[in-house]
Design a protein around this nucleic acid. Structure first.
Lengths: 250, 250
DNA sequence: TCTGAAAATTGGTATTACCAGAAGGTTGCA
DNA sequence: TGCAACCTTCTGGTAATACCAATTTTCAGA
């Protein structure tokens, strides 16, 4: 028998063991797993059981089985597991600056009057939420997602939703955003209005600029809210990085 | 034998057939699948093969197997959390054009020599894969992800991985990409090389342009591969949209 | 040194057998 | 009559074995 918990389904124990070994660096990507018969011997199980475990890995996309040749490591476990877990608020906002800027530009060429009306309403709601000390920032999120939807591109919308979701997925990002809000750093209505006006004018370049300006300001706000020593390094790195980027693209 | 493509891995054919039946409403959620021995008889395969197929469903979370009782339907295929299920290949590529262009620009300001070397190697691998008629396009994916990583921004990387994953999640996108590859529309090495050179020169604007040019070409390839009436509409809409966007941002 | 065929290796599938848990019916007792 | 214990049967769990097919390696012969 393998080693893991011996309850039910032996193949699962074996699969777990193999995945464990994979993530420990034995069997790097591209290498071949031992032959089914060898694995059966090594783990003292029958070959059918080994086959079942290997199939479990195959279905998860971890290995690729080639007839007559062997099972080859295709991807390491955890390679996709949570690559967004440690995203910092800075990275997140930087990504939004890049992506939402382009999304706004595309949206400016695709919006209709209904979209404009909806976005206008959301700007109003952002203003209202700013008054309320206990208010959330849901209107802000809705504003950005409405623009993403206005691109008429589900993939664009989807990716931007993904970014917003990372905000709550990543503990660090979540924390810093809360800190910023607590410090009275709130969505500036003027910045949102500028984006709205650019969309209304169907001017993609203006929309891109306005959105970038807005998110630059958000980034500044985050930097301002950062005082902990733990984050000081990240802050400095981000500033240097941004300056380098700004110089190079100027 | 089952019915599906009879290539390799009988269990996969059977798994496909079962998934097909699941999504057709036979075996609703909570019901029990026929016993392994019965399925073996019905599909004229051996019981081990049936077990392998059921395990494939189990790993995908479609069924739950209870010892001594049977395999019960847990979730329907496509019931999954997939807000990107209906993304078209056009939308996907358009999104990549916008986002990966910016990512390339950022990457150009952040790459180091090791990144360059890695990417160079991947361009080579793309060339090799193009020679192989049965080759996959994994090097292409790796190329784009390596650039995303070179941004030194996990959020950017994450979002771009997300887009690539949509490609396999969305049946329509997957289909069209396969069709395109079948039509000998393969990653053009020159386009990738141009991106590489821009990165080597640390020139963000050139990197953005090269990446956009590359993905524009991919989009053209997809349009070219589209002949079905069913897709004609999407094709036309995409063209009109792109032209409008191009005019407006010119 | 190169080539090609044979041999060894490896996955693919089928058979068969027996064990263990679950389910449902049957029997026997209260 | 009703309930509980038992037993039969069904179902998955695993093992052992045999043979096929594709691939890879080895090695003899040119």
């Amino acid at each position: 028998m393998a080693n893991g918990k011996s309850n039910d389904r032996l193949y699962q124990d074996l699969a777990r063991s193999l995945i464990e070994e994979l993530s420990q660096g034995r069997y790097p990507i591209g290498t071949r797993l031992p032959a089914e018969r060898d694995l059966a011997l090594r783990y003292d199980v029958s070959r059918p059981t080994v086959r079942e475990a290997v199939i479990a890995l195959e279905v998860q996309g971890l290995v690729e089985v080639r007839l007559g040749s062997g099972a080859y490591v295709k991807r390491l476990p955890g390679d996709e597991d949570r690559p967004g877990f440690n995203v910092t608020a800075f990275e997140l906002t930087e990504a939004r600056l890049l992506f939402e800027g382009e999304a706004a530009a595309l949206a400016a060429t695709q919006v209709n009057d209904a979209d404009i009306a909806e976005i206008e309403l959301l700007v109003q709601r952002i203003a209202e939420e700013n008054q309320d000390p206990n208010g959330t920032e849901s209107a802000d999120r809705e504003f950005h997602l409405a623009i993403a939807r206005a691109t008429r591109n589900v993939a664009v919308y989807n990716a931007i939703v993904h970014l917003w979701d990372l905000r709550s997925t990543s503990p660090e990002a979540k924390l810093l955003h809360e800190k910023a809000r607590h410090a009275q750093i709130k969505p500036v209505v003027e910045e949102h209005t500028a984006v709205l006006e650019a969309l209304r004018a169907r001017d993609p370049n203006a929309a891109r600029s306005a959105m970038r300006a807005h998110l630059s300001a958000v980034l500044e706000g985050l930097l301002f809210a950062t005082e902990e020593r733990a984050l000081a390094e990240a802050r400095k790195a981000t500033q240097v990085k941004r300056e380098r980027y700004a110089r190079a693209t100027a």
